[in-house]
Design a protein around this nucleic acid. Structure first.
Lengths: 203, 203
DNA sequence: AACCGAACTGGAACGTGTTCCTATTATGCA
DNA sequence: TGCATAATAGGAACACGTTCCAGTTCGGTT
């Protein structure tokens, strides 16, 4: 597994390069959505994105880097869509459950894509730290926004307790998703696990 | 990835077969301990266990099946060693932390082996459900024994609440281990995460 | 416009997990 | 003991992630 980072769209000079990068990400999404982790094959991504295999590897140093980058982009969109309106719910627990439920349902609408992204995330090693950090930041922001119920939650310093709870909820969420994508838990089970965890943590 | 299960030692007829199976598991442990997931290569396992590659695949239908089977065996040993004496600690939280701390330290003593086993566990798909279930049973038993502080904890029916807490703790444990083996968290971070989760859950 | 270095193309090649095939050996049964 | 069947050995072959290379194109500089 390569040790360098994926190219971010900021550090890409020309518009043509940014377009190429986005074509690659789009191709990865399309192929993952069709056939999951195994069928998202690097040669197929390159062909669909209309770039050479070597170019694909210049932009994303491995299949895992590519998929975790996709995940980061998906969560960024989810976060932006989420904070457009105030989060409904009277208590922190209600709001966190709203966010978890909404995001989980959205993931479950594209099971193959979610399988590919989740497995890549879990399989990633230290070289993918940068891409993973992006995902973690978005998840933390989403949950923090729910706990705070305020659009400027990111500007206030979170308390230790809030961060701890956020981390546990994130861990449970991830573990549940893994169980779901590997067929060891149903969609309902995921909801129940999150419900239980939030109830235990935010009481 | 194959869809059949690994051969368990019970369903293996001859003693020679049981020995072969154990030689394979031992070889997998040795090679994983030396070089982690990537260096535990199927050809090397077959050679070290003195079986043909095809035979290795007859016993374990994939590298993931093999590693998760190893994990099951390791947890079985850990469980048996644990329940030999009463678990120290006055409260459920103390005893759960004792078990988590002890097991985690033991895993961290063989970082490469733990890396291989954890990544295999996280990467496993639905076809590995049987092997994964074995692991889950042992983990649940260990944590339940700690919460109950009684050797016959397995015979009593656990309450819903106990099961829910056990599941959340297990999820956090796994997520922390993943972060540790992928270099995204230190050994100390793992302890701190577990400490926090147990404190939040068993208060 | 000519030039230079970086980026890209197309494709071969390599490594490792996995599959497959044939010859040989072990096992259980009559 | 002799036979039928299953299990194993040995190794070729395949798939896909990854690397590498020679030739071509692109973008900026003078």
């Amino acid at each position: 597994m390569s040790s360098t980072n994926s190219l971010t769209s900021e550090e890409l000079g020309s518009p043509a390069q940014r377009e190429r990068r986005q074509r690659i990400l789009d191709a990865a999404v399309a192929l993952s959505a069709k056939g999951g982790f195994e069928q998202m094959q690097m040669r197929a991504v390159a062909e669909r994105a209309d770039v050479a295999l070597g170019t694909l590897y210049r932009y994303f140093p491995s299949k895992i880097h590519l998929l975790v980058s996709v995940l980061g982009q998906q969560f960024e969109e989810a976060y932006l869509s989420l904070v457009r309106k105030p989060i409904p719910g009277d208590t922190a627990a209600d709001r966190v459950m709203f966010v978890l439920g909404r995001t989980t349902r959205s993931l479950q609408r594209e099971p193959n894509l979610t399988e590919a992204l989740t497995r890549a995330f879990m399989f990633a090693d230290a070289s993918v730290a940068g891409e993973i950090h992006v995902v973690e930041v978005h998840v933390t922001r989403m949950l923090m926004a729910a706990m705070r119920n305020s659009r400027d939650a990111t500007t206030l310093q979170p308390t230790e307790e809030e961060l701890a709870i956020t981390k546990v909820v994130g861990d449970v969420w991830l573990a549940s998703l893994v169980q779901w994508v590997t067929g060891r838990a149903s969609a309902h089970d995921v909801g129940a696990s999150l419900d239980t965890a939030v109830r235990l943590l935010l009481r």
